[in-house]
Simulated scan of single mutants.
Amino acid sequence: MDVSDFVPGVSSDRDEVAFRLSGRMQGAACAITRQALEDHFWLPPGADAHRMLKTFADGQKRIAAIAERKSLTHPGQPVRLSSSDFATKR
């Protein structure tokens, strides 16, 4: 699974990055919160939209894998990834 040719975009309030999955879940609308990028992908607090997209691109494979798993548990629904989706469960 990977992020599709849809260009990821930052929301107007810079609170999340929207993207779509390719492959089996093609077209699935997804988003990851700024807080998740800060907590798990080293986005600096207060970073601009360009830096958010760079951080998203750097973590794209891990983000897409979590988004795919979440979309399988809630088929047909938009996927919004938060910090808790990336928390290590022990």
Rank of each mutant, 00 (worst) to 15 (best):
V3N: 01
D5F: 09
D5N: 12
F6G: 06
V7Y: 13
V7I: 15
G9S: 15
G9T: 15
G9Y: 02
G9N: 13
V10Q: 03
V10C: 04
V10R: 06
S11T: 09
S12Y: 01
S12K: 04
S12L: 06
D13H: 10
D15M: 08
E16I: 00
A18T: 13
F19N: 01
R20F: 00
R20L: 00
R24S: 03
A29R: 10
A31K: 13
A31V: 07
A31Q: 05
Q35Y: 02
L37G: 02
L37P: 01
L37H: 02
L37K: 02
E38P: 11
F41S: 10
L43Y: 09
L43R: 06
P44W: 02
P44Y: 05
A49M: 09
M52K: 03
M52L: 10
L53R: 04
K54E: 14
K54N: 09
T55R: 01
A57K: 12
D58S: 10
G59K: 03
G59T: 04
G59R: 03
G59C: 03
Q60N: 06
K61W: 00
I63W: 01
A65R: 13
I66V: 15
A67E: 11
A67D: 07
E68F: 07
K70Y: 04
S71A: 14
S71R: 06
L72W: 15
T73W: 06
H74R: 13
P75H: 11
Q77D: 15
R80W: 04
L81G: 10
S82P: 00
S82R: 12
S82H: 14
S82M: 13
S84T: 09
